[in-house]
Amino acid sequence: MSVFIIRRLMQSVLVVWIMSLLVFVGVNIVGDPVDMLVNPEADQAEIERFIKDLGLDRPLHEQYWYFLLNALKGDLGNSFIFNQPALKLIVQRIPATFELAIVALLMAIIVGIPLGVYAGLKPDGKISKTIMATSILGFSLPTFWVGMMMIMVFAVMLGWSPSYGRGETASLFGIEFSFLTWNGLRHLFLPALNLSLFKMSLVIRLARAGTREVVHQDYIKFARAKGLSQNRIIFVHLMKNIMIPVVTVLGLEFGGLIAFSVVTETVFSWPGMGKLIIDALNNLDRPVVVAYLMIIVVIFVVINLVVDVLYSILDPRVRLQDLKG
């Protein structure tokens, strides 16, 4: 167990380092922030001083070296726009994004698993066919469009819920969260639902496929031969087996949820990391972009590790040593 985790951590460091290289070089190719940042009336000397201040006059490998040295000290540079540490800017926004993503994930599980299992148990029923057809919509409709429709219908026409922002927050462990207040919850509901639709469809499909496979296994028939109740068979014998692929896939998709919250956050003006990165990209605010990408990489790496550990807990046949790193 610990050997596995140590090996995985070392591999993770390697992954993060390679990504830092790619990100740093990539961002430098995309565009020149100087045009955006410098006052158009500034003269050549002023521009050059500006470039020198930012360290943009030095060769790329040298810039990268300084970036790396500072990064190891936890300093990913200052935002060109806000003139604040980029890392701090992003970390401030993390709770909002995580809150949104976690609530979306919970929604996907709570709605998706019962629907998927039902559709798997009665594959030919009318209700099952409706569920599956709807899940195709969830897959194929673009998130931003659905988000705008939700705002139009539920916020503008029906006036049921607010259409932007986090609403009131309350503090837990010194971090502000929306789900702790009624007003915040109302703000949270629509964007979380919007973000979860795609994953919900995914969970429905996974749960259905898993159920259809598992119900035909001999051990389910044997459970029936033991005279167990329908509930015991579904909620223990079947559920425990289908949760293995569902948890694995969803765990890996959690990173995607955070990355894709960019769209939802923009549509609902949710003040999370996604909104920040869009603004940073528009302004070619390099340090913020780099810091954001690095944090996303770290999140993905951590999620992968957590999923492997979860997987080995759920499936007794798998031990961590057996998983390839």
């Binding site: 001999d218 051990y219 031969a225 033991k226 005279g227 014998h237 087996n241 499936d315 007794p316 046949r317």
Partner: peptide, 20 residues
């Protein structure tokens, strides 16, 4: 079933639930 009438299945590898 399992109480008054019990059955032992043919394939021992498949009759027990792998995750319980």
């Amino acid at each position: 079933r399992g109480n008054k009438i019990a059955m032992i299945f043919q394939d021992p590898m498949m009759t027990l639930n792998p995750v319980l």
